[in-house]
Write a protein that binds this DNA or RNA. Structure first.
Lengths: 201, 201
DNA sequence: GTCTATAGGAGGATAGAC
DNA sequence: GTCTATCCTCCTATAGAC
């Protein structure tokens, strides 16, 4: 798979990640891929079609990515933790999440569709694992799994944003650690008084 | 304040929100503001300087925006709820959050600085209100306020992203409702068994 | 302060030769 | 399949007149 077509898709994936849709030009793609003008327009009708292929490629490879954690070994809570704390290139942001800022991406169903799909797929798995966790008593039982799944996906996506704003990867870690700390059922309380933070100050 | 300078800043704010930094051209700003080429370059050295002024303007007006909720009337939890559920143009995204995807914004301290500042300011207030809520017994006491503050800001920022990906404002609402449901101290449990979701299915 | 002119390069694509 | 030529518009300014 080292033909021009594959290299074009690969380059587009990289550039979309780094510069977004608007910021990625056909010329830049060609140069990054080491492929001529004519070659690119032979394989793809234009920028949008190429981007569509690249986004689909990225989206499709993300599914096994999070499934590996969410459907992996360990207790439900351990799997959630594995997903949330998975190794990520935090300061670069989410390959698909960053694209939804682009007007053109959101306006074009062939560009937005794959992103919609990965997110839906992730939400489904997250909700399922949360439910499992509730049955196991690892996750507090008085919350709605489908809703909290959206919360968790948002923490991840927002963690990228906050970390980039501060140029500090640790913000992402703090965001997901905070979410994890809220997920577990707390120790039973006696009265209405608090028990104090687990990590004081 | 209806002079050319103000109109340029106002237009830049709008266009940055809609198209991001890369997607916003001087020409588009001029047309949107009804101001000529020469006028723009008289008031500002170039695109970056104009964007810097616009971002600073936006960032500065956001602080009283969230303070109004977080420092407002009501119990700590009510204030957090007011902030998280505040009226937002969800599908348009966050005026400042969306900008940190832009390479150029993150690379230029005069562009990223104001964003860094609003976020820091929001985190500080969120942590303070969370602490208050813990003292009042409204927020579970066994979590770290500074960390959960980052989680909440991430939920908001990520809620924008997820909602845009699905083109569904309700995803944002679900994300923050889920976060709120995790914040409160749960009813004391008897054994290791769950009590069942408050909102089943 | 604002206008017009000018400019070199990039963006996005089409056409036809090889 | 790939290459080169060509096209028209936009991008981001600079220069100088009014």
């Amino acid at each position: 798979m080292d033909d021009a077509r594959s290299r074009l898709i690969e380059s587009t994936r990289d550039l979309l990640w780094e510069r977004g849709y608007t910021g990625t030009s056909p010329k830049a793609i060609q140069q990054h891929a080491g492929v001529g003008q004519g070659s690119m327009y032979h394989h793809f009708a234009g920028k949008a079609e190429l981007a569509s292929a690249a986004i689909r490629s990225t989206a499709e490879e993300m599914v096994p990515g999070f499934r590996r954690h969410l459907d992996g070994p360990g207790s439900p809570l351990e799997r959630l933790r594995a997903y949330l704390l998975a190794d990520r290139d935090v300061l670069r942001g989410c390959r698909v999440g960053r694209l939804v800022q682009d007007k053109e991406v959101v306006a074009d169903p062939t560009l937005r569709g794959p992103i919609d799909d990965v997110f839906s797929s992730a939400l489904e798995r997250l909700a399922a694992v949360l439910r499992e966790g509730q049955h196991a008593g690892e996750v507090r039982g008085d919350v709605a799994p489908e809703q909290v799944a959206i919360t968790l996906l948002s923490v991840v996506q927002g963690g990228f944003v906050v970390a980039r704003a501060h140029q500090d990867k640790e913000r992402f870690v703090a965001a997901v650690e905070g979410a994890l700390s809220l997920l577990t059922p707390p120790e039973p309380r006696r009265s209405g008084k608090r028990t104090g933070p687990a990590t004081p100050r």
